[in-house]
Design a protein around this nucleic acid. Structure first.
Length: 394
DNA sequence: TCTGGGGTCCTAGGACCC
DNA sequence: TCTGGGGTCCTAGGACCC
């Protein structure tokens, strides 16, 4: 979906179309200001001047989405609000409306599933779709079906998206960025050299800042340069799994299926404080926040029907280093008090000298509530599928 | 006045078991 | 007194993604 969070706001505030705007989390409840000053007025009637600007923003948030007009100024997602304010002080800033984002996310995905049922969820604003078995899915290399999906999503939501069609997920993901916003891009296997090899390695899904930095140090900036290195050299430099994977990727090879079903592995809640807190001096405040996070995670578990048996905490210190501790208990739980109690024990095992900027709680090792696994009494273990096999040399 | 929140997956060492 | 091989689970940290 194109600039999804921002586009969701533009549905309500069409008067902001074309203006630089950023959407970001943060403490300032911008929508309250809007409502206070303009109660009773239709949202689309609120004058542009009434909207809060990035230059007036105070807080620790980062940008989730920037409109294309804001991107002109060098503002982009994951950038700190304060840095963005320097680059584009006149941008309008609005908070994320999670409920509305979720609603439109479900809506656009259901539109797609009506047309092409094999869909893999990749977060709120992205999916992989398998065109292979869809009637007409191969016409014009997939362009006809892509156009139908685009049109249907727009009719149902008023939102635009960009679609890449290719022989596999790796290339399709790259292709989806070729013609944004509201574009369709068809990439064939034979397009590898002219269209994929010139791309920076960083564009590849799975090559992040660290791997890209290391590749650059080794003189590799583009996918084509990656393809020019031999497999063994990549394995020697990046390890067996990563090296072999990089080699495959650079030659456009990817055989991962489109996965339509998956079970959650963990659920967590975390929060960054308005100001750094100290374990001793701000003990009461931290305790209250911690209890609240535990209750939220417990609510999430119950609402979604899961229980878990690994309870963990996460801290981020003022120097941005983080620490985690977790503990596995002998029964599954979705109880806030239990999570709080075990989390409290985890907290005792972690250094608390430095000021803290973030606290989080996580529950992992999940099972469906009421499933045989979740109900198994302590100490019993179902016969497990083998996790690995190791070949003997002799 | 840097740097959110919710996730997944991988690695590596150690405990423990047969 | 020294010493196997194969395997699972737990824990901590980190890279990466949306």
């Amino acid at each position: 979906m194109d600039a999804f969070f921002a586009s969701v706001e533009l549905l309500r505030y069409p008067q902001l179309k074309g203006l630089p705007m950023v959407i970001g989390g943060g403490r300032r409840k911008v929508d309250e200001i809007v409502e206070r000053d303009h109660a009773g007025r239709a949202l689309s009637e609120i004058p542009v001047e009434a909207f809060p600007l990035l230059k007036d923003y105070v807080g620790r948030g980062v940008i989730t989405t920037a409109t294309y007009a804001a991107r002109q100024f060098g503002v982009g997602s994951a950038m700190g609000m304060m840095k963005a304010a320097k680059l584009c002080p006149q941008a309008i800033v609005l908070p994320v409306d999670f409920d509305e984002v979720r609603r439109l996310s479900r809506l656009f995905k259901s539109v797609i599933r009506e047309i092409a049922p094999v869909v893999e969820d990749r977060g709120v604003d992205e999916v992989y779709i398998d065109f292979t078995e869809v009637p007409g899915g191969q016409r014009e290399g997939g362009r006809v079906l892509a156009r139908l999906i685009q049109k249907s999503i727009f009719q149902a939501t008023g939102l635009t998206c960009s679609i890449g069609v290719a022989p596999n997920k790796l290339i399709a993901k790259l292709a989806s960025e070729f013609d944004k916003p509201n574009g369709i891009s068809i990439v064939y296997a034979s397009d590898l050299e002219p269209r994929i090899w010139p791309l920076p390695c960083r564009k590849v899904n799975g090559i992040g800042p660290k791997a890209d930095e290391k590749l650059k140090r080794l003189g590799i900036a583009t996918v084509g340069q990656l393809a020019a290195r031999d497999r063994d050299w990549l394995i020697a430099n990046f390890g067996k799994a990563t090296g072999a994977w990089m080699h495959e990727v650079s030659w456009g090879r990817d055989d991962r299926p489109v996965v339509t079903e998956s079970e959650p592995v963990s659920m967590s809640r975390e929060t960054t404080f308005d100001r750094d807190l100290h374990a001793v001096r701000d003990r009461a405040e931290l305790g209250a926040i911690f209890t609240h996070l535990c209750e939220k995670v417990a609510e999430d578990l119950r609402r979604k029907g899961y229980v878990g048996k690994t309870i963990g905490i996460k801290l981020r210190y003022d120097d941005f280093k983080s620490a985690t501790r977790d503990q596995t208990i002998d029964r599954f739980t979705d109880d806030g008090k239990t999570i709080r109690q075990i989390g409290g024990q985890c907290l005792k095992r972690v250094p608390l000298e430095r000021p803290l900027r973030l606290l989080g709680v996580r529950v992992g090792a999940l099972a469906k509530a009421g499933s045989p696994e979740a109900l198994a009494p302590a100490g019993t273990r179902a016969a497990a599928e083998p996790v690995s096999t190791t070949a003997s040399l002799f």
